[in-house]
């Protein structure tokens, strides 16, 4: 299935893009997290939050054409 991923903050910087479409065979957000961890394109941090279709969640079932956002906290002002 196709998942659109949006990267924010320093994650976007480390993966060097703000969004991408991935063709993947997986069922849940947790599987996607593992997949991204293995790709090792950005620094893992337990504070990163994930949103599926604009809803912040810890885990969720993923379906074709879902939109997943990766959000790191930042504190500039």
């Amino acid at each position: 299935m196709r998942i659109r991923i949006k990267y924010f903050g320093w994650i976007a910087e480390q993966v060097n893009k703000r969004e991408e479409d991935l063709e993947l065979d997986l069922n849940s957000l947790n599987e996607l997290k593992d997949y991204l961890k293995n790709k090792n394109q950005f620094q893992e941090d337990s504070s990163i939050r994930y949103a599926v279709n604009q809803e912040l969640v810890d885990d969720a079932k993923l379906q074709d054409n879902d939109l997943v956002a990766l959000l790191p906290p930042f504190a500039g002002g």
Binding site: W10, Q43, D45, S46, S47, R49, L56, P72, P73, F74, A75, G76, G77
Partner: peptide, 15 residues
């Protein structure tokens, strides 16, 4: 939203 701050602080003075 973010239960705890991350271990890495990023500020304007660096970024």
């Amino acid at each position: 939203l973010f239960s705890n701050p991350p271990w890495k602080e990023i500020r304007c003075e660096i970024t």
